[in-house]
């Protein structure tokens, strides 16, 4: 596969390490009352869609960027690649 890195252009997927569903960005707050349930869902449950999947790839053999790749799990077609940092910030994550 080829991932079109937003900074570096097209790179072979073999340069990257895969983590999983991009929802892993949404780490719950560990100090709230519902934290146990939130963490269970966050860490263990997956939509695992047959179709478009937003997922995290890490450019380990490259610039160390974490990317959010939108890829179809039926065809492997990639339709969007973003820097995970930008996605996280857009989702309101900060400090």
């Amino acid at each position: 596969m080829i991932i079109n890195h937003p900074l570096l252009g097209p790179r072979d997927a073999a340069e990257f390490v895969y983590l999983g569903d991009a929802s892993l960005i949404n780490r719950p707050d560990g100090l709230t009352a519902d934290a146990s349930g939130d963490f269970y869902e966050y860490l263990y449950l997956r939509d695992n869609p047959a179709g478009l999947h937003k997922e995290l790839w890490y450019h380990e053999q490259g610039d160390r960027s974490w990317l959010v790749v939108t890829r179809n799990t039926l065809t492997h077609e990639i339709t969007e690649v973003e820097l995970a940092r930008d996605v996280a910030k857009a989702q309101g994550r900060d400090k």
Binding site: L45, R46, D47, N48, P49, A50, T73
Partner: peptide, 16 residues
């Protein structure tokens, strides 16, 4: 499993 159990509205601790 993910596909079929989603018919029952279930998310699973599973990836394909």
């Amino acid at each position: 499993s993910g596909r079929v159990m989603s018919l029952a509205g279930m998310r699973l601790p599973i990836e394909s």
